[in-house]
Design a protein around this nucleic acid. Structure first.
Lengths: 129, 129
DNA sequence: CTGTATCCTTCGGGATACTG
DNA sequence: CAGTATCCCGAAGGATACAG
C-alpha cells in the first residue's frame, strides 16, 4: 500500500488512496464471496466451503483469518465434539458489501462492451503498429 | 441493504461474478489512478508519469494498453517530433470511476476501525489459540 | 517524448497430506 | 468438523537499459 507523497496538481490523492485501501481488503480472490455468504447470518466453515464453489480449505482459512483480523468477520467457536465454528459478517462488512453494488452493476452493464472492445483490439493486433 | 435471503445452492453467483469482473479491470495497482487522471480530459504520457507518484514507465505503458484494450481509454497519437500521445477516459471508464465512489467512501469511513481491529488482533496473537 | 526489452523478486493461490 | 503444514507455480510488478 503506497501512502504516496502528495504532489501539487495531483489527482485527488485522497480518493485514490481510499480506493486502493478498499481494494486491499476486498480485492482478494475470495474475500467478497465470503463476506456475501456471511452477510445473511452466521455460517459454518463447511457450509462456506460448500457454498463457495472452487475454494480450497487452505484459502478459505487464510481469507477468513484476514477478514477476522480486519474486523469484517466475527468468529464464534462452540467447544463441542466435533467442533463447530460460525462466522458472521460485521456491520462494517455489510456496509462494504453494499458499497459494492454500484461496481457490480457497472460490470453487468458494461461487460459486453468490454468484451467487444477487447475482441476488436485483438483483431487489429496485426494492423496496429 | 438487502434483506438476507440465503439462496439454496450458492451465494448469488451473478453478483459475485460481476464484482470479480469489475475487480479484474480495476484491481490492478495503477488502473484506477490512471482512469482518474484521464477522466478530467486528455492527458499525455509524461504528464501521467508525473501525476501518478511511484509508477514506472513500464507499468504505465502496460496498464495503459490494458485499459485501451478494454475500451476504457482512447489513445491519440500526434505524429510530431518529438512524439505526442494523449489518453482520454471513455464514458464507460468515467462511469466506472463514479461507481467507485461508494467504495472509496466506505474506505474513508472505516479505515480507522479496521486499523484498530487489526492492531487488537495482533496484540492478542499470543493469547489466542 | 514515448515507449520496449530483459531480468529478477515477490506473492497469491492451487494441490496435497496430515491433525486435534 | 475445522483446520495446519508443505511444496510449487504463474502472474504482477520493480529496476534497469536500450530505441525510434
Amino acid at each position: 500500500m503506497s501512502e504516496g507523497s502528495r504532489l501539487p496538481g495531483d489527482v485527488e490523492p485522497d480518493v485514490c488512496a481510499a480506493f486502493r485501501d478498499a481494494l486491499d481488503r476486498v480485492g482478494s480472490k475470495w474475500g467478497m464471496a465470503i463476506i456475501a455468504a456471511a452477510s445473511s447470518g452466521p455460517i459454518r466453515f463447511a457450509e462456506l466451503h460448500r457454498t463457495i464453489p472452487g475454494i480450497s480449505r487452505r484459502m478459505l482459512t487464510l481469507t477468513l483469518r484476514t477478514l477476522e483480523r480486519d474486523g469484517l468477520l466475527v468468529r464464534t467457536v462452540y467447544p463441542t465434539v466435533p467442533p463447530q465454528v460460525e462466522y458472521t459478517a460485521t456491520s462494517v462488512a455489510r456496509e462494504l458489501f453494499t458499497s459494492t453494488r454500484a461496481l457490480s452493476e457497472w460490470a453487468e452493464n458494461n461487460h459486453e462492451k468490454i468484451t467487444a472492445s477487447r475482441a476488436a483490439y485483438d483483431r487489429n493486433a496485426g494492423t496496429r503498429r
